[in-house]
């Protein structure tokens, strides 16, 4: 049955319209969790607010479990799900540059757009920066192409690397994530900051 677009249950334009609706859900959830606040996001790296860790890992786990259950019920054909290819060096290099950008800018691209939509001016500046950064990349592409395409590993899955079933790996990730959440909640008390209050349910 799914993915709908691959099995041509919906048209290309419907797909784009649904992308818009999915985006609304994405933006709404991000904002409701305070991902529109750079201090909340940055709190992750100082321990005073570990929301990012909790939301991020819970979402990844729910996504992974959801996919496997849908496949189990025959609702989705996993072989048509896009798996991002792994180019080891550019993945690490890009991640390092992004990490630096994260700690200096306080946002990532998705959250900056979400923050700008509620009027955060620093987020607007961040988005301006993203445009410059992407432009620098597209212009400098001939110089970077070698590094960009180096160490191509195909689209491997982590469970294949460890020789586990997908379900088993997910179970282990759940245990690891719950342990991290526990550490995170401990850190929020340990590194609490007098001028920053976590305001959540």
């Amino acid at each position: 049955m799914g993915p709908l677009i691959v099995n041509e249950i919906i048209s290309e334009n419907t797909n784009l319209f649904l992308a818009f609706l999915i985006g609304i859900g994405f933006g709404f959830v991000l904002e409701s969790n305070g991902f529109s606040s750079s201090r909340r996001l940055a709190g992750m790296f100082y321990g005073y607010d570990t929301t990012v860790l909790k939301v991020f890992f819970t979402a990844a786990i729910v996504g992974a479990i959801g996919l496997l259950f849908m496949s189990l019920f025959g609702w989705i054909d996993l072989s048509y799900i896009y798996i991002n290819p792994t180019y080891l060096w550019s993945s690490i290099g890009g991640g390092v540059v992004m990490g630096a950008g994260f700690i200096l800018g306080g946002y990532c691209p998705g959250t900056s757009v979400c923050a700008a939509s509620i009027g955060k001016l620093d987020a607007l500046a961040f988005i301006g920066g993203i445009f410059i950064g992407v432009f620098l990349f597209t212009e400098g592409y001939p110089l970077l192409e070698g590094f960009y395409k180096a160490k191509y590993l195909g689209s491997p899955l982590l469970n294949e690397v460890f020789n586990l079933s997908r379900g088993m790996l997910i179970f282990l990730i759940i245990l690891a994530a719950l342990a991290m959440f526990w550490v995170g909640e401990w850190a929020e008390k340990r590194f609490a900051h007098e001028d920053y209050k976590i305001n959540q349910k």
Partner: peptide, 28 residues
């Protein structure tokens, strides 16, 4: 930060949502 993130996201073929979150959900 934006410049670095923009540049890095292209080099790493995706940002926190596209590569990290989605990639983890498909166990890539």
């Amino acid at each position: 930060g934006g410049i670095l993130f923009g540049f890095g996201s292209q080099l790493g073929r995706g940002c926190t949502s596209g590569s990290a979150l989605t990639g983890m959900a498909v166990l890539s």
